[in-house]
Nucleic acid binder design. Structure first.
Lengths: 341, 341
DNA sequence: TTGTAAGCGTTATCAG
DNA sequence: CTGATAACGCTTACAA
């Protein structure tokens, strides 16, 4: 295990001061281009690698961004992370990723780790049941920029990157109505989370705009799991006045529900038309293919990381752009299209 | 933005030396339990947080583990990462995650970042076409432990966590043979990667053991994408002597292939029985449900992280346990089961 | 059990 | 354009 090369070694060998070496290695403007060349050459020759800790310690920043997500193993989340990683990497930042596993407790622990790890900024998508945001206040107090994405906070005034969930909910519902559905069931998640409340709002608005009544018995709050999907199918099957449309705000849940409905010999979309949310790969596998809201995960990740980094570099003040809203798209597939109304 | 509290502040307020404070905060054995209590109390009171950089700089270790994966947005990979994150988090390590996007070039860049980031150890799953491993040699030279998982290196002598891909390939193929298949097509990925060569070996062995000929025209090397799946279906459809069994080493690819075959009115499993690999969520959505090899992603991540951390803490020497082989399971579903042989 | 003091490798400030 | 020097906050011999 060879000894680490430092700027002192380079300096000594070239009869320069460490300060000059440091400057050369950091593209400082006021440095002679010849000396710079010499230094970079020597650095390469000696196999020098910069010591990030020393640098961080001195500069009081880490070039590290913390990311807290509800869970890692979801198609949407991993797309987001992929986008974040791309951008962060390009711009010389590292990502420290942590999952809350949908639990506030774990989310708090993650936040603490990030805080102690002195991340330069934090990207957060909230857990299922987070209410208080005290664990994130410390960041704000310390002036560490905080940016929410997807599952954002409605209380804290932090920048967030989202889609227009109200409109998405509206579009999904309106689409079902246009297909002739009159009784549309809405299956969604914990209403503490903006994504679910907003989609519900959209659902209600679409009903109103099309002169359909809002029937509370057609709203189901679930944990959006596959089991929940099966459960929903069961309940529908037991209903006297069955729905003829189904808007489920998660494709995985929607797909398991469809499979269960099919077992009960419901015809999709004739008996019941279905719309999901996320455009997960399963949407194109289930038969009939699932109509869903396409939701730009990778792009969301890129933009979130981009914004945070721009802010960190003083290019843009994150506080001024308070919410970034991305486009989404209703992708119509067979699960919802009725040939006749 | 308040000033950071340091051990000096604590020391001053308690009339102690910073050394004592440091020791107390690190559970040093030779420290008076009373003073220790005093110190921890004061630390809490002042909102002290340890500065990892100063500590790292001093101790020459980072408590950070680097992870390089081919891509982030795959079900399998995100399960692995989820497992790694759990373990790392429990044991006080951070994860720096980077994706090679299946390109050697990007993989090299990632390795360099990790190297400069002075990770304590590295967990790697190789990109599609990586051949030379020079970019990883630097870690070995520096004595930084390197552990491969899933897509491992056959050359470098580093610990790896895998499943027995030969056996998995064998089991999948044997299962098809037991279902009466005589001409089994094998669709797989770049043979530079152990996972694919080994599965091919298993395929060949199963054929031999069951007295079936190995027909090179039934081997297809693809990029395992969905498009590849469609392409395979097309080719099968154009073949004169069609296969009656299909072993595709990736569920996503298998599923798109099945969908395409169904469009060409192949009956699955009657005309062609299909086995996939990975047990991706889509396997349980496609109809008929896909028989596949279940592959413990989360567990693989946990074990990989566990082993590396144990090694870092001197509990186990990683060099002694050279390969950790996990169990897999052939999950039989409808896509391969023929009522009569 | 506690204190002293050196040093980890950078970078920012100031001076030249 | 370059150099000297003082931090950054922590750990660890060594000494007391």
């Amino acid at each position: 295990m060879e000894k680490e090369v430092t700027i002192y070694d380079i300096a000594k060998q070239l009869n320069l001061s460490p300060a000059t070496v440091s400057r050369a290695l950091n593209d400082h403007p006021s440095i002679n281009s010849n000396t710079k060349e010499l230094i970079t050459a020597k650095a390469a020759e000696l196999g020098y690698r910069s010591n990030a800790f020393a640098s961080n310690l001195r500069r009081q920043r880490t070039n590290t961004i913390g990311v807290i997500v509800p869970r890692l193993n979801s198609h949407f989340v991993s797309s987001v992370l992929s986008g974040m990683e791309k951008v962060a990497n390009e711009r010389g930042y590292n990502l420290i990723i942590s999952q809350s596993q949908e639990s506030v407790k774990k989310e708090k622990a993650s936040a603490k780790t990030m805080f102690n790890g002195r991340v330069d900024g934090l990207l957060v998508s909230l857990a299922y049941d987070t209410e208080e945001l005290d664990h994130l206040d410390v960041f704000i107090k310390k002036g560490i920029p905080l940016l929410f994405f997807d599952r954002v906070s409605t209380h804290t005034k932090a920048t967030s990157v989202v889609i227009d969930n109200v409109k998405a909910g509206y579009d999904a519902t309106a689409h079902l109505i246009e297909q002739g559905c009159q009784r549309i069931m809405h299956v969604t998640g914990n209403l503490k989370r903006n994504v679910y409340t907003d989609r519900l709002k959209g659902y209600k608005l679409a009903l109103i705009d099309h002169n359909l009544p809002y029937d509370e018995s057609l709203l189901m709050i679930t944990d959006m799991s596959r089991e929940a999907g099966i459960d929903v199918a069961q309940q529908i099957s037991n209903m006297y006045n069955k729905p003829d449309g189904l808007f489920i705000t998660n494709d995985l849940c929607a797909v398991s529900c469809m499979a269960a409905l099919k077992k009960e010999s419901f015809r999709i979309p004739q008996d019941i038309a279905v719309v999901g949310f996320n455009d997960d790969p399963v949407a194109q596998v289930i038969e009939p293919n699932l109509t869903t809201i396409h939701y730009p995960g990778e792009e969301m990740g890129e933009i979130a990381a981009q914004s945070l980094i721009n802010h960190l570099n003083g290019l843009v003040n994150i506080q001024t752009t308070n919410t970034i809203v991305l486009h989404f798209e209703l992708v119509v597939r067979e699960s919802s299209v009725r040939t006749t109304g």
